[in-house]
Design a protein around this nucleic acid. Sequence first.
DNA 1: CGTGAATGTAATCACCGATTACACAATTGA
DNA 2: TCAATTGTGTAATCGGTGATTACATTCACG
Lengths: 242, 242
Amino acid sequence: MSKSAKPPPSRSASKPPVRKRAARPSVVPRAAKGRTTTSPKTYHHGDLRRVLIAAALELAEEGGADAVSVREAARRAGVSPGAPFRHFPSRNDLMSAVAEEAQRRFRVSIAAAIAGTSADDPLARFRAFGMAYMRWAMTNPAHFEVISSGKYFSHDQSEALREDNDELIAMTEQLLMDALAQGQLRSSDLRVIKIAGRALVYGFARMKIDGHFPRWGVADAEADQMAEAIITLFVDGIAKPV
Amino acid sequence: MSKSAKPPPSRSASKPPVRKRAARPSVVPRAAKGRTTTSPKTYHHGDLRRVLIAAALELAEEGGADAVSVREAARRAGVSPGAPFRHFPSRNDLMSAVAEEAQRRFRVSIAAAIAGTSADDPLARFRAFGMAYMRWAMTNPAHFEVISSGKYFSHDQSEALREDNDELIAMTEQLLMDALAQGQLRSSDLRVIKIAGRALVYGFARMKIDGHFPRWGVADAEADQMAEAIITLFVDGIAKPV
DNA sequence: CGTGAATGTAATCACCGATTACACAATTGA
DNA sequence: TCAATTGTGTAATCGGTGATTACATTCACG
């Protein structure tokens, strides 16, 4: 038993026989049309694409992005292993769809955080942006990984993904331009500030997700407060001294 | 992650029965005692462990960390698929060994960079440290990923890995303490500076590796110069103003 | 209705990691 | 010297996965 401690999940690892699908007579499609409010079980699923994405999101939450398998998603959707092929030609296509949904949620979260700050203080908004970024990543590590790891899709593959991402980038640029216009910054090299800020929040989020915190002496309970501290340090560093 | 690491290796070109065992590198230990004429192949490889690690490093370089497969490493070593099991009970154990070797090289590179700076200026050393960190990561992306992704091993599994890592952490702490003692810092919260600095360089390295640079308008050719710029921005931000 | 386009099933294939029984070599020590 | 022990590679097999094709069923629309 000892050896099965908990190796970073390799998908091919143990698959406890938990998959008991309610015995589905594979060729008794129609049948109960009348009343069964439970499971009409039609031959055609009807909403497979959506259900597959949901299942994949769930799998990612449970075991990390690498734990997502097309077959398992199909199992959870109650269809055959080949069925997803109709909707997603490859696993990467599924992951792209997952990424789209995850990124959509991400953006909603960011937008909400920014909306709660004053438009009169661009630097404060910039700070709130960074905080919201790190918070969401730490709260949804697997989804964040799908979005950002660059291993599951290319931006060239998804118009929505690319647009969403570009919009976030444009937002940071706008905030920095406003801050500069209001004389809040001590440097005018916005490009460098933009990349540095992004690297900071992305790096912090990945440190959490990649399990670096224990080695660096950051307890999970104080991660949020540490995020506040580093974004404050950064913003103070770029702000024009009073 | 059982297999999908190799997306479309069109099956035909994939593996013609070419076992490139020709000219097995490094030591062919005994064997060559009497008749090296026909087949220097001994039943016992003699140095399989080392060769497997080398092959895995090579595979990582070629196709990323996920492209490393035990079977392919065995193929390149000219042994049967089960042979590696004698030396590495699991793929993760192989990857841990790969990580150890990669981390050793990483540390050598860092040490060399630091040695080239003056001990009288801790902040300059801190800066050089960060630069060396980002440079090595960008030069050896796959190896860096194996070390840092946290997906291939746990620090609990490898004494050497843990010690190497702790030493790097201790080094940053020492540098910051020295800098503070010399009055180079405007803040005395070294812990926050430490985490923020680490997040910055790690985040920048991962942005490069994860393919974020194009979206953020950073050309490959200027990545090094951008690294210089952001570490400068950061150091200026924490330095006591003159 | 009836027919064609969608959509799911079944059956394969190749690859992978893991594991076991077995074969062979190298080392040891009496 | 030589037999036994220990170490190391081979062969065979298992279950899991992504991909792909031929076939079955159903739906939607004329």
